[in-house]
């Protein structure tokens, strides 16, 4: 074996050892091996769960973005509609329809309200992102969160029907944890996409700091919209809104 070959072999062994010891490298390797063939809007959920690496590559290369946008939109609306109905079932059958209609408005509305800020601030900080990519990214966050909500829906339903009226604190806490977990999963997907693109192509699809700050903004907008529209307020009609700041309401309770 020549000296060059020996050095290359030892370098690859070292790289392998580093990759094994570094957990981040493991998911990067997994994402690198992901393959996914986009076969229509309904297959997007499969890609978001099984082949996130392939979805990230499609997002960067703007491949099939319209299908991704349609698929993610459908998943987000359907998941929030179903989970909204479960949320409403806590306050009796009458609220099921109201909450089922209001909750998607809160989720999709928050995404829509925060999309311009996402695009503009990402562009300002030097990220290479088109408006279509920004829309797809925001909807991917919503869809990834929606998939977790769908997975939790049977469990949330079971607790809603099997818990008596005295345990509304528990139910509220459980729903809050589920919604927080699902939203965090969506953000986690975008953050990993950012790190994967930076690792693979050395390019910045997003700016990491702006992404984190924007996520805080999205959560605040979601909370304020939920307070304004009130999918859980049993005393409100379908189109009845309430002015006020969500943090004040939270402190009051």
């Amino acid at each position: 074996m020549s000296t060059n070959e020996e050095s290359a072999s030892s370098q690859s062994q070292l790289a392998g050892a580093v990759a094994k010891s570094n957990p981040m490298r493991q998911w990067l390797r997994r994402w690198e091996g992901d393959e996914f063939r986009l076969a229509g809007p309904l297959s997007v959920g499969n890609g978001l769960l099984r082949a996130q690496g392939a979805v990230a590559r499609d997002l960067l290369g703007s491949r099939g973005l319209n299908t991704y946008i349609a698929g993610c939109g459908i998943i987000t609306v359907f998941a929030s509609l179903l989970y909204g109905a479960i949320l409403g079932s806590v306050n009796g059958a009458g609220q099921v329809l109201y909450a089922a209609l209001k909750f998607p408005v809160v989720i999709v509305g928050s995404c829509a309200v925060c999309l311009p800020s996402f695009y503009v601030f990402q562009a300002l900080t030097g990220a290479r992102l088109t408006l279509q990519q920004a829309l797809a990214s925001v909807l991917m966050l919503g869809a990834a969160a929606g998939l977790i909500l769908l997975g939790c829906a049977p469990i949330a339903w079971f607790f809603s029907v099997s818990t008596s009226d005295g345990a509304t604190t528990f139910l509220g806490l459980m729903h809050a944890v589920i919604i927080a977990l699902s939203t965090t999963f969506g953000f986690h997907f975008l953050a990993r996409t950012h790190r994967y693109v930076a690792w693979k192509y050395g390019e910045r699809l997003f700016d990491g700091r702006v992404l984190a700050l924007w996520f805080v903004l999205l959560v605040m907008v979601g909370a304020q919209m939920a307070h304004f529209i009130g999918p859980l307020d049993s005393g409100r009609g379908l189109l009845e809104t309430e002015r006020g700041f969500f943090l004040a309401a939270l402190l009051d309770t």
């Binding site: 998911w27 769960l49 099984r50 998939l147 977790i148 997975g151 829906a153 049977p154 469990i155 079971f158």
Partner: peptide, 17 residues
């Protein structure tokens, strides 16, 4: 039956295809 959808999702997001 109640846990299965979430368990399947948990398996997929943990990288077990």
């Amino acid at each position: 039956a109640l846990c299965f959808p979430l368990m399947h999702i948990a398996l997929l997001v943990s990288g077990v295809n």
